[in-house]
Design a binder for these strands. Structure first.
Length: 1166
RNA sequence: AGGCGCGUAGCUCAGUUGGGAGAGCGCCGGCCCGACACGCCGGAGGUCGGGGGUUCAAGUCCCCCCGCGCCUACCA
């Protein structure tokens, strides 16, 4: 019926990827709070390209999201990108450098234009890569950390924190990169072990007059050039060697010139010897030179002892004027020079080799320079931020929310309920409870809304109430007594009389038996959308107000759990977060300094109340227009396609994603001009309804308008904006609520936040996860996410990190090209075990492409044998056979394992279960079993027999299709493409996408224990025969005669029932029961059954004997173990009875096996 | 230095409350049998890093040691 070509991943993946996006399958316009499952993607860096870590990250998210979606959740997975300040600036600078352009030459504005030109190219590339992976994200909600909404959110966050005193500006020692010319946060510094030297320098001690006493104090340093900035020598107060020197002074060698501190005060070259506990006695000489301006610890000591700060190295790594004769030298040249000079003058005592770790810029690898400068900090160490961030992870916060709900209590007589169920627009079932309904309970918006119960019957009302508490997942449920009329697919269903409950959960109607207050699941009656038609004889409604205390747990759970400790350890020792960066690409700090009164102004669009003002202000603050601009410029920008969503304009983006209002507002150059004119025109004050505020001023020379910002303290217009931008992570910290529209109180924020899951790598727990928790809890008073799944690092096959330098990267795109995205995804999933890094080698992908191929071909087999008129044949199909029930049982067990594994994020287990099922159970056994029925030729001349054969074939095909369809659904989250493709090809499916079908769950009705046991036994028997054939080296194409003998009724039954399968799958000519071993046969056994194979001609028995000897050894060893256990009195006494029983059984089995084996060996040898 | 993780078949790894050692790849032998050679059938291969302890029973829990990896801190 279906012509299937060979499996070609590229072809199908391209097709479905496009289909999903074009149809916006994964867009949910208005998700309901109760049903949602929301995830935000860790925004990939716009500079990068997708590497294996991204592929893993995206795959793990997609598996959970697709699974949750199939479980009926309304999934919203928000994609987006991160502007990556330093990294992007670095990349663009490098590109410009190739053209011989430096950013300093072209200036800030021009440079940013270049970046904006470059960014979309890179962004689009990653976007394409993500779509190739098959991620089921909602592209309509895509965001960028530097889009208009985010930029506004960042300013709002900054302002709020500033006003709360949680952001401050201070002089502090920071990690400075002399190449990128910016401060770096502690986390952005990479330490590496390096060989260096420890130089011992003698500082002459001087008396009160400043004359050298002849005594020296020797300090040790790895950075002699910083001695020029020394302002003290410190020793430990308990150090006997130096106690007498404390309080005295030394004369700083070489320095004969005048030095100045940060405020311009002169600093003497006679510096004090101070005592400080932080000095370690056992390092170096126990005396340490103090350079407060260029060393973090010295900075601290300098602060405590009130030492002057002398900067001797500038931003570019060159020596400052304080370095006297060394001024202008690079810090490394200066080091050489200083050493030479010291040696020359006899101050250098010795030089020792030392390995120490040196901090490098994470981006350009330049050695960082600790330097005192003025920076902005977030006071994350403040208890208002720190405490709650610890608490939500450590123990969680339980919040009690009192809710008032109104429940209609309807006392009725003769209650009738009709439940029509529609599936895909067609009626799939109708349930009619004519006057037999007992009570009815329903919800509205997730809350109990009404109860219908028999007039005056308080007992029933109470029962209904308690059931409403107990049953969590329902939209309504009806209880009835008596005989209901249930019609499913046109057939009336009979149910034995009793008290039952129909529960509708939004997806399906389940039937439960009601015994007292207990409910017992019977079966699922129908799937689809259920309606409710209620009639009653009389009604009396009373509204009851119920106070409900809703407990809401705010707890962030790390998976695997040990990352919790990792996070908490860091939180306990939290240092303030330096957020200013001396670069251009990023969110410019929304601070304007007043040049007149010196005060600090933080502006946001909250300072304006009209939409025009707000937009103009945001455009200026974002650097999109200058503070002086023309209305045409504004219109042009607002009417241009948006960077993230080119299908709409920037103005529309503002309305939809930034303000979430002003929907009808249009802005044109003309309307702006009018607005500005009125604003600036003092006469307008006389016109009613027009306000003037003097925000805009026209400059007739430049013919431009200017938005005037005024100092909030002195009203001066003489303001200057801070030149720095914010750390990218400051905006990323707002990601989980920023993407939903915060700071506006949007529907998405209400319905989708907190998010359910965050998947990320451990390396950014501090950078990102911690900061999202800090900012999330602070701004939204709620956690940003419930579960944080921390995934592994992807390494090469030798366990090394993948890096471009080593050249061991495996590019996911190459893998997709060669093996397909499905194989890539499945491989990553099956290798994902909690707490272990992934070692990757290309062969692995190949292996799982084989799996995809296997599924493809299995489907080909099924479809090849599905007749055109299959559906019409179904009503005539024969009853299920045992193997059908067996595979259905296996399918259900697999569904259960996969569901459980995924709910615990056990990706590997889940993937293994479906792999095992598909390949071993379905392909290797079930398909082989069906061949008997599929290939059986019906005799043309016997109508009755022909019909029987055909109907049995229909059953086989039906089961093949039924199981295949469900198995594809189970596999779908792992391999979305191939499952989508194959699913659409099956005749028993309809719908837009497999991803919108229901994820299979274990159905107790489909568990057939008896048949399962039989088939397992059958497999053992077949395997035993195959094994003997192989030992005897009988070619597979030769059919041999065989016979068996057994005392077990069960085994006999299995053999008789499945004789055909045994003949087919063990390649036997015959398999008859005998009393004793026939002549000319070789024996083997499977449990209680002896099997005899007729050998014709010469057979090499050596190999067989060898094989049996080996088995005998094994059994003996086992027996020894079991006997030892069973002869241990303590074991018999203390071990649980069932364990002892089991051991006894094992012993019996082993002894039987041994007897049989020895007998066989005797015959073989004799 | 402190903390965390890992050490199971040649390789990569599963092994969920402590009860007869597993998978994939590789290897060996045999097969193009009407889905699939990206396949089928059969098979070999392990003192579960070493030592001690708890227990009737330890790959699984506790302690020590060895090896590997990672993180944090210090490094004048």
């Amino acid at each position: 019926m279906n012509e299937m070509k060979e499996y070609n991943p590229q072809e199908i993946e391209e097709k479905w990827s496009k289909y999903w996006i074009d149809k916006a399958i994964y867009h949910v316009e208005k998700p309901q709070k109760q049903k949602k499952f929301s995830v935000v993607i860790p925004p990939p860096n716009v500079t990068g390209s997708l590497h294996m870590g991204h592929a893993l990250n995206a795959t793990l998210q997609d598996i959970i999201v697709r699974w949750q979606r199939m479980k009926g959740k309304q999934c919203v997975w928000v994609p987006g990108f991160d502007h990556a300040g330093i990294a992007t600036q670095y990349v663009v600078e490098k590109q410009l450098a190739k053209e011989g352009i430096s950013r300093l030459e072209i200036g800030r504005e021009e440079f940013l234009k270049k970046v904006w030109e470059w960014v979309p190219k890179s962004r689009n590339a990653i976007r394409t890569q993500l779509t190739k992976l098959g991620v089921s994200v909602d592209w309509k909600r895509e965001r960028f950390t530097l889009d208009e909404g985010f930029s506004r959110a960042v300013r709002k966050a900054f302002r709020t924190l500033y006003e709360e005193g949680l952001i401050y500006r201070a002089e502090y020692i920071v990690n400075w990169c002399p190449k990128d010319l910016t401060a770096l946060s502690d986390l952005e510094v990479e330490y590496e072990e390096e060989k260096g030297s420890l130089w011992y320098i003698k500082y002459p001690v001087v008396d009160e007059q400043g004359n050298e006493t002849g005594e020296f104090i020797t300090v040790a340093t790895t950075r002699p050039e910083t001695m020029l900035g020394d302002t003290a020598v410190a020793v430990n107060p308990n150090d006997e060697r130096y106690k007498h020197l404390i309080g005295k002074k030394v004369k700083l060698p070489l320095v004969s010139w005048e030095r100045k501190d940060l405020k311009g005060n002169k600093v003497s070259n006679l510096i004090p010897i101070i005592a400080d506990e932080r000095v370690k006695m056992d390092f170096g000489t126990g005396a340490v030179k103090i350079t407060p301006a260029h060393d973090p610890l010295d900075f601290e000591i300098g602060k405590t002892h009130n030492l002057p700060f002398v900067r001797v190295i500038d931003e570019t790594g060159k020596m400052t004027e304080n370095a006297g004769e060394f001024t202008g030298l690079d810090r490394y040249e200066a080091r050489k020079s200083v050493i030479e000079k010291l040696q020359e003058k006899g101050y250098l005592e010795k030089e020792e080799e030392i390995t120490h770790s040196v901090g490098h810029c994470y981006r350009c690898k330049t050695v960082i320079e600790p330097m005192v400068s003025v920076q902005w900090f977030v006071k994350v160490s403040d208890e208002r931020i720190k405490d709650i961030s610890i608490k939500v992870v450590e123990e969680g916060i339980e919040e009690r929310e009192e809710k008032e709900i109104f429940v209609q209590l309807a006392q009725v007589e003769e209650l009738s309920v009709v439940i029509p169920v529609k599936d895909d627009g067609k009626y799939s079932a109708v349930i009619v409870l004519d006057k037999t309904a007992k009570f009815l309970v329903g919800k509205r918006e997730g809350e109990l809304a009404y109860i219908y119960y028999p007039k005056g019957d308080e007992e029933t009302l109470n029962l209904a109430r308690s059931l409403a508490e107990e049953i969590k997942n329902y939209e309504f449920f009806v209880a009835y007594e008596g005989v209901p009329k249930i019609v499913i697919a046109g057939n009336e269903q009979l149910i034995e009389p009793g008290t039952y409950l129909f529960i509708y959960d939004g997806n399906k109607v389940d039937l439960y038996k009601l015994e007292g207050k207990k409910t017992k699941f019977v079966k699922t009656l129908a799937r689809g959308e259920a309606d409710l038609e209620v009639t009653q004889k009389s009604i009396q409604v009373k509204v009851e107000k119920i106070k409900r205390v809703e407990k809401k747990e705010k707890k962030v759970r790390f998976i695997p759990e040990h990352w919790k400790k990792f996070y908490l350890d860091w939180m306990y020792n939290l240092k303030d977060w330096c957020i200013s960066r001396q670069i251009w690409w990023g969110h410019r700090i929304p601070v304007w300094y007043c040049k007149d009164c010196g005060s600090v102004n933080v502006f946001t669009d909250d300072d304006f109340d009209r939409v025009y003002d707000k937009i103009i202000f945001n455009l200026i603050a974002d650097g999109k227009i200058d503070q002086e601009f023309t209305p045409e410029e504004v219109e042009k920008i607002l009417k241009s396609p948006h960077f993230v969503h080119p299908e709409i304009t920037v103005l529309d983006f503002y309305k939809k994603f930034v303000f979430h209002k002003y929907h009808t507002t249009d802005i044109t150059a003309d309307s702006l001009r009018l607005f500005f004119t009125q604003d600036a025109n003092p006469m307008a004050i006389l016109t009613p309804g027009v306000s003037t505020r003097n925000i805009y001023r026209y400059n007739s020379q430049t013919k431009k308008w200017r938005m005037v910002l005024r100092c909030k303290k002195c009203n001066s217009e003489n303001l200057q904006q801070d030149k720095d931008v914010l750390d990218t992570w400051f905006s990323s910290a707002l990601w989980p609520f920023g993407v939903f529209g915060w700071p506006e109180n949007t529907e998405d924020v209400n319905n989708l936040y907190p998010t359910d899951l965050l998947v990320t790598g451990f390396d950014i727990i501090f950078f990102w996860v911690a900061r999202m928790i800090m900012m999330g809890t602070h701004f939204t008073k709620d956690i940003p996410f419930h579960d944080v799944y921390v995934h592994a690092l992807v390494r090469d096959k030798y366990g090394r990190k993948m890096s471009k330098t080593i050249g061991n990267v495996i590019d996911p795109l190459d893998i997709i090209q060669k093996y397909g995205a499905d194989a890539l995804r499945f491989t990553l999933a099956i290798l994902t075990v909690q707490g272990r890094d992934i070692k990757l080698a290309e062969e692995k992908f190949e292996g799982y492409k084989h799996f995809a191929n296997k599924i493809w071909n299995a489907t080909r087999y099924v479809l090849m044998n599905t007749p055109e008129d299959f559906i019409a044949r179904v009503p005539y199909m024969a009853p299920f056979r045992a193997e059908d029930k067996w595979i259905i049982t296996k399918l259900n067990e697999t569904a259960e394992i996969v569901n459980k594994a995924l709910s615990e994020y056990q990706y590997s287990q889940a993937a293994h279960a479906i792999y095992e099922f598909f390949w071993s159970d379905y392909c290797d056994w079930y398909i082989e079993f069906t061949k008997e029925r599929i290939y059986k030729r019906a005799p043309e001349d016997n109508e009755e027999l022909k019909a029987k054969v055909e109907n049995e074939r229909t059953t086989a095909i039906y089961t093949l299709l039924y199981v295949l369809e469900k198995a594809l659904r189970i596999l779908h989250p792992f391999m979305p493409y191939i499952t989508e493709e194959l699913w659409h090809r099956l005749p028993n499916t309809e719908g837009e996408s497999i991803s919108l079908t229901e994820f299979p769950e274990k159905n107790e009705e489909e568990i057939y224990e008896e048949e399962k046991e039989k088939i397992e036994r059958l497999r053992e028997i077949i395997t035993t025969i195959r094994s003997l054939r192989s030992d005897l080296q009988i070619k597979p194409n030769i059919k041999v005669k065989a016979s068996f003998r057994t005392d077990s009724e069960f085994s006999k039954e299995v053999i008789e029932e499945f004789k055909e399968h045994i003949l087919n799958l063990a390649k036997l000519e015959s398999f008859e029961e005998v009393d004793k071993r026939p002549e000319g046969t070789v024996a083997t056994f499977s449990r209680d059954t002896e099997i005899f194979l007729h050998i014709e001609g010469h057979v090499d028995l050596e190999k067989l004997i060898e094989s049996y000897e080996k088995k005998r050894e094994k059994i003996l060893k086992e027996l020894e173990r079991v006997n030892k256990k069973l002869s241990n009195e303590n074991f018999l006494k203390k071990a649980p009875a069932h364990v002892v029983e089991k051991e006894k059984q094992i012993k019996e089995e082993l002894e039987n096996d041994l007897n049989k084996l020895e007998e066989i060996l005797k015959v073989l040898k004799g």
